[in-house]
Nucleic acid binder design. Structure first.
Ligand SMILES: [Mn+2]
Ligand SMILES: [Mn+2]
Ligand SMILES: [Mn+2]
Ligand SMILES: [Mn+2]
Lengths: 141, 141
DNA sequence: GGGGAAATAAAGCAATGGCTACGCCTAGCA
DNA sequence: TGCTAGGCGTAGCCATTGCTTTATTTCCCC
């Protein structure tokens, strides 16, 4: 099982490879706001757990396992951002909240949230009605 | 700011006082599945942070701050359980997921989830429609 | 007053993951 | 082709968190 931090690294690495074709230590470090030496250490851990193949000074390649997991992690993060956006959470809170909760939800829960997001996507009227509920609750207090 | 573990202790303490009128070290320990010495230590920390007033061998009393926070924590936990239940997460996953995410959501997010739960509560037809979306998605794959 | 249960203190441990300092590699330029 | 700057890696260290073990203290009730 990957720790929260391992997931954050893997997520970032997958995204970098997806967008730029490669993931350098310095880019990972910058993205996660840690020092490069921390990245090297974590990469070695991810290698040991077979998420990627690492060659010193040569870069890294995600294994099938790492690719699959990375993809899921990136999608999960995006899904949760969408979810919080839909239910009306303030922009400035979303990223931090997602960074926190993403590591603590079962895949069962993720699937259910996916369904929920799709539910609101299919009929924008539903979002309007949700907003109405919100307004009523605010008026009440 | 309280750490996740501090929140878990405070939540449990509030609940015990609410249900039995008092919170003994051994009950707290049992509920959280830790040793009594761990409880004593954490109680001292909570005392230092003014969530409660602690007298050795005499028990503890929540301060207004502690009461207020404890109440919010218990309600937050319950809300999140309701939320996951509504969207169709399996019983067996709910407790663990809630235990994890509850510490990582802003109060803004909590409020929005409250609204969402109320949205489904007001019209059970909405839950049915959500279930329909789910079935369609399942049929698709 | 004594026995036993409950609570506390002290010490230490393990996991995690960050940082600093310094040394090593290599791409790319001179 | 050799140098070197900057990227990368290693080693050692530290902070945090929260738990355990063990030993001692206190309380309560007989
Ligand atoms: Mn994260
Ligand atoms: Mn993320
Ligand atoms: Mn919890
Ligand atoms: Mn809880």
């Amino acid at each position: 099982m990957a720790t929260p931090s391992m997931e954050d690294y893997l997520e970032r690495i997958y995204k970098l490879i997806d967008e730029k074709g490669y993931a350098r230590v310095s880019d990972i470090a910058e993205g996660l706001e840690v020092h490069p030496s921390s990245v090297t250490k974590m990469i070695q851990k991810l290698d040991k757990d077979n998420y990627l193949i690492y060659e010193k000074y040569r870069g890294l390649m995600l294994t099938p396992k790492g690719k699959k997991m990375g993809k899921r992690l990136v999608e999960r993060h995006q899904l949760l951002e969408n979810f919080l956006t839909i239910i009306g959470v303030q922009e400035d809170n979303i990223y931090k909240d997602v960074e926190g909760i993403e590591h603590h939800l079962s895949w069962d829960s993720i699937t259910c949230i996916e369904t929920l997001v799709e539910y609101f996507r299919r009929d924008p009227g539903r979002t309007d009605e949700l907003l109405n509920v919100r307004k009523e609750l605010e008026a009440d207090n």
